[in-house]
């Protein structure tokens, strides 16, 4: 049985907390606070420390950690990325400059990307269907030129879609582990 520690990162409002709630088989530990600046992102609450959930993918156990999206909480990124083996970057397609967010998040977690798995999930793709997918693929390739970074359009509320994203990430982690063990 393997145990995976997975981080969910991305800008505020991308759907990180929702995604963990969709996936988790335990009651999610949330640290939400009142969002006092609705002009930045119009949602009532925001995560200020972490979200935590768990899912069993028989026989493996997956621990799901969501980090706050705002850079003022980057100390939480540092704390949680130490133990992480994989990264799911979520970005909402209708955000201003979503590829900039992808660039910032992949750069912030580049060390994790170099040793673990990475996938990108684009939420709200249905309301902003443009060439954003191509732009995000190009951005991921520019930030992480030595690896292929899968990019999916996902609905964070949809358990099956999030499960597909998670399984893709775990396959990426296992592939990289196998390559490392083979000395590739």
């Amino acid at each position: 049985m393997a145990e995976y520690v997975i981080l969910f990162a991305g800008p505020m409002g991308a759907g990180k907390t929702t995604a963990i709630r969709s996936l988790s088989e335990i009651e999610v530990v949330s640290t939400e606070a009142v969002n006092s600046d609705r002009s930045a992102v119009d949602k009532p609450t925001t995560t200020v420390a972490l979200d935590y959930g768990e899912i069993d993918l028989d026989p493996d156990k997956v621990r799901l950690y969501g980090v706050p999206g705002q850079a003022r909480f980057d100390f939480m990124w540092e704390i949680l990325r130490e133990r992480a083996m994989g990264l799911i970057v979520l970005v909402n397609a209708d955000a201003p400059e979503p590829e900039r967010h992808v660039h910032e998040q992949l750069a912030a977690f580049a060390e994790l990307a170099s040793r673990g798995g990475v996938v990108v999930g684009v939420t709200r793709y249905d309301v902003q269907r443009t060439d954003i997918g191509d732009r995000i693929v190009a951005t991921a390739r520019a930030v992480l030129p030595d690896r292929v970074t899968p990019v999916f359009a996902v609905d964070a509320r949809d358990q099956e879609q999030m499960r597909t994203l998670l399984l893709s990430l775990i396959a990426d982690i296992e592939t990289r582990q196998a390559l490392a063990e083979a000395g590739a």
Binding site: A33, S36, D37, T46, V48, A49, P68, R72, M76
Partner: peptide, 26 residues
């Protein structure tokens, strides 16, 4: 604020933003 914005600080020198963010998370 509960979501980690500095409203006011003492002493005035420097920044209290980092402390505000950490206190919010704590």
């Amino acid at each position: 604020t509960d979501d980690g914005f500095e409203i006011a600080r003492v002493p005035q020198a420097g920044s209290g933003q980092r402390l505000a963010s950490m206190a919010s998370a704590l």
